[in-house]
Amino acid sequence: MQVVLGLTSLLLTMLILLHKGRGGGLSDMFGGGMTSNLGASGVAERNLNRITVILGLVWVSSIIVLGLITKFDTGL
């Protein structure tokens, strides 16, 4: 389980870095600046989204399983 968590964490970080960044920096973060809508995203981006969501689910569930293991089975 720990290996799974380690692998998914690494992969998830990589995948998120692959995404195209939206929204530029601080200037439009705290008021000011106009946020331009960049239109629809391409097919690649959509597939990337799907993979990222699935990987994220695996990641969260492995964290929860690991937490449950450490809670109920201290002798592991």
């Binding site: 720990q2 380690g6 964490s9 970080t13 870095l17 964290i63």
Partner: peptide, 12 residues
């Protein structure tokens, strides 16, 4: 593992 998890969390 904790460092990796928290980094991934920030990414998410």
């Amino acid at each position: 593992l904790m460092v990796l998890t928290m980094t991934a969390g920030t990414g998410v």
